[in-house]
Write a protein that binds this DNA or RNA. Structure first.
Lengths: 364, 364
DNA sequence: AATTAGCACTCTCAAGTGCCGATTGCTAAT
DNA sequence: ATTAGCAATCGGCACTTGAGAGTGCTAATT
């Protein structure tokens, strides 16, 4: 029942763990499987009755006790069955879990949903997280692709009030960012059009990462834009957003937690909701996943926050062109269907990859 | 157990209700006040001890029994004190409640927060609901001002992909709406600029409600815009959005429900969250409030949905120019601080009114 | 040496019991 | 009309009990 793996971090963990003998492995796998399916602690009787292990309950008990001692299983209380510990889940995820495949319908559904909101980066990502949260009945969260390696196509400065300008940035991927800025003195609509035009002529086709602050200020001086407006443009072009931990986190499906029996306790629930609101922690998880490839699973105490010790998170990065540019994640109870979630996440990442791959190659 | 209805509750209900004698009134008021403050059922002992009523517990008991019989109070169980019924709350808000005033700080806080996000209608309203939900620790919800009596200033058609156009509508109030549309065939950036220009020249200064479909199609033909794009423009200009029950509902503060003792029960919680997601019901409440003036309170079973029988809602419309154009609402437990919420809502409506009043008078 | 049956033990959970305190409604006295 | 006094009611809490589930240990078996 040994299992190959699908991502970098797991290899490490897998390599560190001593390998369990065949029978222990089989029992551990079965316990995890059964517990994920039922949510009830698993006892020796259940195991021998429902699964054809070819050994007696007594033997199973001995093995369970041993696995318990080695830290792969926990016992909620003396007269209860066993429940996987973080370590148990980890072993399962690294070595035992069978990769699952989605039905063509599911696959197509995801792909279609992602495509539906294309052309608006924020919408795509927001939509993606909602789709995932519905499919998994967990919380899904995501960050939009970072701008740096997108290519400048167009900037539009729209006068929306006496001293208010709305800035819209279009890149090869579509509508990439927009913001409203209050300017210190009034700009005429014509001024703004003129400015937009020179920005557009000058910057057209450049990767955003290549646009220097110098170039911007020079352009700004030529078009006599007020400082605050220039600053806003610089911001939006990513000069600053690269280090910006405030990059917005999109999320959906918080209400799904209500269905999970592990969140009956309102304190847990509250802790997780606060976490969602705070954004930082989840943002960092996604940001970290940008370093690696493929789905990454974090279980219970492996997560950076004690309030998440009852949860697991699956994250996966997606690419723009050939570099990781954003990521999506799922947050649910530790007792989650890891195999299925990994399959879903892979599909989602693929869909985003091809979407952004495709769009990236089109031109204006 | 006669029940007032919720179409035009405040005044009517007040007039319909028989007037209680002075002592009953005083006791009912005190019970409501005490229950709102503590959340515990109120007994005769508490009343005589904490409040100087000048009568003995026994007399209070007789009055309580009488009020109970007349339907103003409920008794959770035989050995508990009394709790206001819907009718009791109704009598309280109609006749007993003392108007509360906010501190200048609170007032200024609301005003400042509303102004912060101005120039973007959606943001203003979204922001408003977040501010309210934080101040009240309840759910706040709102709809953006309807477009119809806003004045056309500018439309921008931005090419964001081979066959994708982003439409931005600016009115006298600022950035009023935007959407992305997929076009059947490709438009060049120049085509779009030309089209924008003729729309802008032609429609400038018109109230959106006065822009006819005819005018649009004529313009569209002159600029040879594809049909789907024209349809999208027509849509956004409000031709259709007037009857559109799907006008987006902004809301915030759902997590506040976790703190309310009346939502310890997850089923209630779930029901309310579903309601939020469904949007229709809350949308209708706001829409109804557009007919009237000032804050409107709906209590328990007066609300259109049985799942809300433990809740109360306060709504208030706000104006653009001199006509109601949008509304905000608060949803919380029946045991809410009605006087304070009404004060907050009035302040919020005022702030929005002056914001939109002010902006409306400015020109481009 | 590994496996197993048998059994005592432990612990949770649900139901049942009894008591305490809060609050009432009634009655008789003021 | 008001009140004091008092029996009655009921929820909630602590406690007990028994059933059920599951274990770990031991001694017998393979």
């Amino acid at each position: 029942m040994k299992k190959p793996k699908n991502s970098a971090p797991k290899l490490d963990a897998g390599a560190n763990e001593p390998e369990l003998d065949r029978r222990k492995t089989s029992i551990l796998g079965t316990v995890v499987y059964e517990y994920i399916a039922t949510g009830e602690p698993v006892g020796s009787a259940t195991l021998t009755q429902k699964y054809n292990l070819g050994i007696s309950p007594a033997t199973v008990r001995a093995e369970l006790a041993s696995l318990d001692e080695e830290g792969y299983l926990d016992q909620p209380h003396t007269s209860a069955g066993r429940v996987p510990s973080d370590r148990g889940y980890r072993y399962y995820v690294d070595r035992l879990m069978l990769p699952e495949t989605l039905t063509p319908e599911e696959r197509e559904h995801i792909r279609a949903e992602v495509r539906r909101a294309s052309h608006q980066l924020d919408s795509v990502v927001d939509h993606a997280s909602h789709v995932l949260s519905n499919l998994t009945r967990s919380i899904a969260f995501a960050i939009a692709p970072r701008l740096s390696n997108q290519i400048f196509r167009h900037i539009e400065l729209i006068r929306i009030g006496e001293r208010a300008v709305h800035i819209v940035l279009v890149t090869n991927l579509g509508l990439a960012a927009q913001t409203t800025v209050e300017t210190s003195h009034e700009m005429s609509a014509d001024d703004l059009v003129r400015a937009s035009n020179s920005f557009n002529e000058e910057l057209q086709g450049n990767a955003l990462v290549d646009i220097s602050m110098d170039a911007l200020t020079k352009l700004a001086r030529a078009t006599s834009l007020p400082d605050d407006l220039v600053r806003a443009i610089a911001m939006i072009l990513g000069e600053h957003s690269e280090t910006d931990v405030e990059r917005r986190l999109f999320s959906g499906g918080a209400h799904n937690l209500l269905d999970q029996q592990e969140f009956r306790d309102l304190r847990n629930l509250r802790a997780i909701l606060d976490l969602l609101e705070e954004q930082q922690t989840l943002y960092r998880l996604l940001h970290n996943s940008l370093q690696g490839q493929g789905a990454r699973i974090s279980i219970g105490h492996e997560l950076p926050n004690a309030d998440m010790s009852e949860c697991s998170v699956v994250t996966i990065p997606y690419k723009v062109g050939d570099r990781n540019a954003g990521a999506v994640g799922i947050l649910g109870p530790r007792r989650m269907q890891y195999a299925r979630l990994v399959a879903l996440m892979n599909c989602m990442a693929d869909s985003l990859n091809t979407l952004f791959q495709g769009e990236a190659s089109h031109g204006s």
